[in-house]
Design a protein around this nucleic acid. Structure first.
Lengths: 125, 125
DNA sequence: TCAATACTTCAATAATTGTTGAATAATTGT
DNA sequence: ACAATTATTCAACAATTATTGAAGTATTGA
């Protein structure tokens, strides 16, 4: 897995619609969903959904299989997890355990989030 | 960690420059790097780098700390890993082991990548 | 205090992405 | 064969993101 592949994965998850689609399909598991089901679940015009599905298939995060006149989409979870492996490669100069530890047990992530972003004009520092 | 936060993480890694910056800092570990070091390592104009660093800090993937006139950036690895936790929530309708298994041991991911994308006009099917 | 250094902000512009409706292709049931 | 269904492609347009150079802020060392 090279940089270009990883970049495609992130690009393909960097849209609210595509993130919703991927999550829906992760939850659907092996049975996946056909395009029309996705469109009605998420209330997205089919023409726009097609655009986003294409992006997700190109990155490899989704697979498609034809079923008569339906197209069945499924999530590719291993690719997702492998993307993290790429990011944590050669981790932590001299303290590789900083990554290793974390790969096993995923902690309470909220503690690592930054404070809420101050939006336009309001004086919070 | 909610959808908006996860989306920001993916948006902030969906640029080649930002992906390079994050990887550089993952490898740097606890010592991080100051902005100027990042700029010269990756050969990016400082004004453009600033733009990308801001994006990464806002998503939480990087932290900044002032050091005299320098700004020291560090990668936030737990946030990265937590993002995956979010994606694999409620996984795999009836077969949760599909995710659970994979969370522990990360497989040969290349096997899950799609065939090379055919670019404009060339007849490969 | 003054000049040099480190970095960021701003405004203009360039480049890329997302959305829509109309047209198209493929498949099924009658 | 025909009409209905499922989904995709295309071209126009809208919206968002990225890049640059000039100007600005803050810190340091002389």
């Amino acid at each position: 897995m090279d940089k270009a592949a990883v970049l495609q994965v992130f690009e393909s998850l960097s849209s609210g619609i595509r993130l919703d689609v991927f999550r829906l399909l992760v939850q659907a598991g092996r049975s996946g969903r056909v395009a029309g089901e996705i469109a009605s679940s998420l209330d997205i015009p089919s023409t726009n959904l097609s655009f986003h599905l294409k992006t997700l298939v190109q990155s490899g995060l989704l697979t498609v299989e034809q079923e008569g006149r339906f197209q069945r989409y499924r999530a590719n979870i291993p690719l997702m997890l492998g993307t993290i492996a790429f990011l944590t490669e050669n981790c932590c100069a001299g303290h590789p355990e900083d990554c290793a530890e974390l790969r096993g047990a995923i902690p309470d992530v909220d503690a690592f989030l930054p404070p809420l972003e101050c939006s336009k004009g309001d004086s919070c520092s």
